[in-house]
Amino acid sequence: MKFTSVLVTVVVGVLLQVALARFTVGGTWVFDLVLVAVVFAGLQWGPTAGMIGGTLGGLLQDLLSGTIAGVSGLAKTLVGFVAGLIGTQFVLTRAHGRSIIVAGCSIVHRVLMLALTGLIEQHWPGTTWGAMLAETIVNTAAGFVLFQLVATVPGLVARQRLGRRAGFGRRQW
């Protein structure tokens, strides 16, 4: 059940990434919704789920983008594991607390990606702090929306159901 949930989360992240990235090609706004999905899996279901989600999401990203398979996979495996570890060590229930973890993970992930690419290509790939900051902001915002939805939607649905039942009861009596 947990594996299916992780798989669905990662696939939804990949689908959203490819669908939305089409509108931002060549723009300054860069985001990684697969990373947000991996951090979500880690915080929600623990370190094992985080690293499995990271491996699946990262490898899928590598295979689809035609780059060296394993680079994004390795970075996301480590980030997913760390996110899961943080989720088990600290009580993070509020959306803003969890989105701060997304922000931290975005920076760590970008640095890991740069380091791995630098090691493979034997030169430090060019990056700007502005691009890294923009990516962190967009990822954090996406994470905040996701965590807020997860926190409020089940409660809203339950309240609606209760309200419907109560209404039905009043009509009967």
Partner: peptide
């Protein structure tokens, strides 16, 4: 599991870097 996953991916990366190619069929 973490060590296995990381090692597996490191090996996958090294194999591609050494052969100067990707994993075409899988890709």
């Amino acid at each position: 599991l973490l060590v296995t996953l990381c090692l597996g991916q490191v090996l996958l990366i090294s194999a591609q870097v050494q052969s100067q190619g990707g994993v075409p069929l899988l890709q």
